[in-house]
């Protein structure tokens, strides 16, 4: 099936099989390997992306379902090589250890801060329920988000 998607501002037209998951389309067809595959069962959130403004796990969406949408991935967060405040805060608070979950953590907390620029600690934790850090580095992740909350 022919699909057209806009990822981080750039439009791509590709022919994809209906069985292809969005995460595989992003990584294998578009070579956007920032979004990770952690569990492939919908639990870990490493593949989280924002589709038409909505935070989703891209391992539970078919690429064909994303036809016509505007997708944001971790590669699109920084502008002109400058980290966003949130990315900078992750760096400063050592909010990543192995880094595998980080793309998903950044997308989930980016989505949170857009909707709620002043989240409480509980709201931050609740927003991260769908993202697993197997290094268990949650404390510093929450600290990083708190530091940019208004």
């Amino acid at each position: 099936m022919e699909i057209a998607v806009t990822v981080n501002g750039q439009t791509y037209e590709r022919d994809v099989e209906p069985r292809k998951l969005l995460i595989h389309f992003l990584r294998d067809d578009l070579d956007l390997t920032g979004s990770h595959i952690g569990c492939d069962t919908g639990n870990c959130g490493a593949c989280s992306v924002i589709v038409d403004g909505v935070l989703l796990k891209s391992c539970m969406l078919l690429a064909v379902q994303a036809n016509g949408t505007r997708i944001e991935t971790v590669e699109g967060l920084s502008e002109d090589g400058e980290l966003t405040r949130l990315q900078q805060a992750f760096n400063e608070h050592h909010a990543l250890q192995c880094g595998y979950c980080t793309p998903g953590m950044l997308m989930s907390t980016t989505a949170l801060l857009r909707e709620n620029p002043s989240p409480s600690e509980d709201e931050i934790k609740k927003a991260l329920q769908g993202n697993i850090c197997r290094c268990t580095g949650y404390w510093n992740i929450v600290e990083a988000v708190k530091s940019v909350a208004k």
């Binding site: 919908g42 935070l55 539970m60 989505a111 769908g130």
Partner: peptide, 9 residues
């Protein structure tokens, strides 16, 4: 139910 991403979809 589940988490933000799942509730969104």
């Amino acid at each position: 139910i589940a988490d933000v991403q799942v509730r969104n979809r």
